[in-house]
Amino acid sequence: MTLPPELKDAAANPVELTVRELLGLFSERNRDPEIVGRIEAELRESELVCVPALLNGHLHSPVVVRTLDAEEEPAADAPEQAPPAALCVGDLPTARLPEGGLVCLAPSDSLEHARFVMLENFFSQLPVMSGPYMLHGVVSWQSIALAHLRGRCETLTDATEPAPEVGIKAELLITIHDIARHGCVFVRDTDQKVTGLVTAADLSLEFGNLTGPFLQLGEIERRLRRCVELMCPTTMDLRQASGYNRANSPEDLMFGQIVQVFKKPDRWERLNWGLPHSGFVGKLDDVRGIRNQVAHFRPSPLTPEERQRVDIFAGLIKSLMP
C-alpha cells in the first residue's frame, strides 16, 4: 500500500474528504481493522494523520488528512475503536446525492410537467421543493391516481402528498418499514438539508449486493463439502486431513478446515482433476478470505474485483462438481 497522489501534499495543504472517499483512495471500501491499520500506518509513515480517526463516524462523515503533530502520535496501548455496528440510511449511495443530483419540482410547476419528468427519467415519485431545505411534499404516480379518484387532479398541488422524511444517521433496519409503506423516504442531513432519497428499489439493490455473494458462497461451500466426501471416505481420513478430531462428516467442518483438506496433496490426488494443486488451493484460499468478510456481514458490499473472483471460482467448482 502506497500513499495516493491525492495526499502527497497533505502536509502543506490538508485534504478534506469523507471516510468513503479516503478509503477509495486506497482502493478499499470497508473499515475492517486490518485495512484501517494499514491505511493509518501508511499515513504515519508520511507524517500524516486522519482527523477524526478513520474508525469514527459513518462512511459519509467528513475527515481531514493533515500533518501529524508529535502529541497526536497514537499510544501503543490505545484502546481499539470499532466502526458503527448498524447500517445507517446514510450508508446507501442515494441518501447523499451530489450537488444537483436530486431531481425535484418547484411548487409553481404544472402537473403536466411533473408527468413528463417522471416519464423521461423513469421515476416513480418526485419531491416538490422550494430550496434544499424546504420540502413541500411528494408527487407520485399513485398520488396522481388518487387525485383522479377524488375528482380533482388539475394542479400539482392536487397530486402532492406529505413527504416521509428520515435523518441521515437513522438506522436502516428500523427505517425499512417506512420505506416499504411509502415507497420511499427523503433524507435530511444533520444540517437539515435534503440530500437524497431511498426507495424500495434502492433497498432491493442493496439487498442483492449484500446477500447475492452470501448465497453464491453457500453454493460453493456445499460443493466443496461433496469434494471432501471423495477425498476423505472414512472418519479417520476426515479427522486427519482437516485437523478436527471431532469431525464425523464434512458438514462438521468450518470453511478453513475444508481448505486444510484441499491442501493435503494425497487427498487432492483422490479428485483426479488434472489441475495444478497449488493454483487451485491459492484460488480457494482467496475465496476463503472473501467468504469470511461476507459471513461477518461487513457493512460495505464486495468490490467488483471480489465479486469477479467469487463468480469465476463458483463457475470452476460447478464444472468440476456439478
Rank of each mutant, 00 (worst) to 15 (best):
E40L: 01
S61C: 02
L68Q: 07
P74C: 05
R66N: 04
L48R: 09
A82N: 11
E45W: 02
V63F: 04
S61V: 08
R66P: 03
E47R: 15
A82M: 10
P52D: 09
A82R: 12
R38P: 00
R38N: 06
A75W: 05
L68T: 05
G57R: 08
A70H: 09
H58W: 04
L68A: 13
R44K: 08
A82G: 04
V51L: 14
E47C: 13
P74R: 12
V65N: 10
V65T: 11
G57Q: 10
I39H: 00
A41C: 00
E47I: 01
R66L: 10
A82D: 14
T67D: 10
E72W: 02
V63E: 04
G57M: 06
H58K: 02
T67A: 15
R38H: 05
S61P: 03
D69P: 07
E73M: 15
A75E: 13
E72R: 07
I39R: 00
I39K: 00
S46H: 14
E47F: 12
P74I: 13
E80L: 12
L54N: 09
L68C: 12
S61K: 04
A82W: 09
A75S: 13
A41N: 06
E47V: 12
V51F: 08
V49A: 15
A76D: 11
P83H: 03
L59M: 09
Q81D: 04
L43Q: 03
V65C: 12
H60F: 13
P83G: 04
P74T: 12
R66S: 10
L43A: 06
P74D: 07
R66Q: 10
V51D: 15
N56L: 09
I39F: 01
A41E: 11
R38D: 10
Q81M: 08
L59K: 00
R66G: 09
V63P: 04
P83K: 02
E80P: 01
H60I: 05
A76W: 08
A82P: 00
D69R: 10
P52A: 10
D77K: 04
E45P: 00
P74L: 11
V63G: 08
E80N: 04
C50K: 03
A76C: 03
D77Y: 07
L43R: 03
P79Q: 03
H60Q: 01
V49F: 07
L43S: 03
P84E: 09
L68Y: 11
V51T: 14
I39A: 00
Q81K: 07
P52C: 08
E71P: 00
P79M: 05
G57T: 06
E47S: 15
G57K: 05
E42V: 15
E73A: 14
V65M: 12
S46D: 11
L43V: 13
V49I: 15
P83M: 06
L48P: 05
P62E: 13
A78W: 03
S46C: 08
A75Y: 07
R44V: 07
P84K: 04
A53P: 02
P79R: 06
D77L: 13
P52M: 04
L48F: 07
E42W: 00
R44P: 01
L68K: 11
E71D: 15
L55I: 03
H60M: 01
P79T: 02
V49S: 02
E71N: 14
L68M: 14
V65A: 10
E45G: 15
L54V: 07
Q81I: 03
S61A: 07
A70K: 08
I39L: 01
L54S: 08
E45A: 15
R44I: 06
A41K: 13
